[in-house]
């Protein structure tokens, strides 16, 4: 681009050094990350570990980089891709799984810290090939569109029902707000959870 080379020339003639960062031009100080002293990395053998995870009732042994989250361990190491990554920062809830029956964001849990816990993922919800009542209710109430947030929604809903809240519309909405659905299926999600809650009071308790 000819206009560009002219700009380089102008900048270089106007300034002894034309390698400026945008921030410096704006009057901000040296901001390069390189200036930040970086702690020395540990030796490679200390960066990985052999761990054992109990996933859907099965003990799984795997060697992982210690930085591996439970989410990446499930998806990349164990092939359990039903648990989804939507932000990797705990801001969407798509990765919700149960740890000892409690819902957590798998993207915010280091795999190495989940040893000894009983992890349940969407793949472990159906029993003997039969859908969990929440799964069936999600289909019946059309509580999803693209389906991407759905495993997280369902795990969160299963937890909601086991946490002992009164399944009112308001309570469901508040306690399901950690699971974003960009398709906007929220009203149907509320109906599905109410339906599953109704079934669990009228029939057998919801299994995990």
């Amino acid at each position: 681009m000819p206009s560009w080379s002219r700009r380089v020339f102008l900048l270089s003639s106007a300034s002894a050094t034309f390698l400026l960062t945008a921030a410096k031009r704006l009057g901000f100080g040296q901001r390069s990350a390189a200036a930040q002293p970086s702690p020395a990395p540990p030796p490679p053998e200390a960066q990985t570990a052999e761990i054992a995870l109990t996933i859907n009732g099965q003990l799984q042994r795997l060697r992982i980089d210690l930085r591996t989250t439970l989410l990446d361990a499930l998806r990349n190491h164990l092939g359990l891709t039903g648990t989804k990554k939507g932000c990797d920062l705990g801001q969407c809830g798509a990765c919700t799984v149960l740890a000892d029956g409690r819902r957590i964001n798998a993207c915010l849990a280091l795999a190495v810290m989940q040893q000894g816990k009983d992890i349940t993922t969407i793949e472990g919800l159906a029993k003997d090939g039969e859908q969990h009542p929440v799964q069936a209710a999600f289909i019946e109430q059309d509580a999803f569109q693209c389906g991407y947030c759905t495993p997280g929604q369902i795990m969160s809903a299963v937890a909601f029902l086991s946490e002992g809240h009164e399944p009112t519309d308001a309570a469901i909405r508040e306690w399901m707000s950690g699971n974003l659905c960009r398709c906007g299926a929220y009203p149907n999600i509320v109906e599905a959870i109410k339906q599953a809650a109704h079934q669990s009071t009228n029939h057998a308790p919801l299994h995990l």
Binding site: L80, T81, G82, Q131, I139, D142, F144, Y148, P151, I154
Partner: peptide, 21 residues
């Protein structure tokens, strides 16, 4: 009609791009 892909989606079996290995 209920979604025909419903069982796959609620079971975590629907495969999105990054789910292929």
């Amino acid at each position: 009609i209920d979604r025909v892909d419903g069982p796959a989606k609620v079971g975590g079996k629907a495969r999105y791009a990054a789910d292929f290995r």
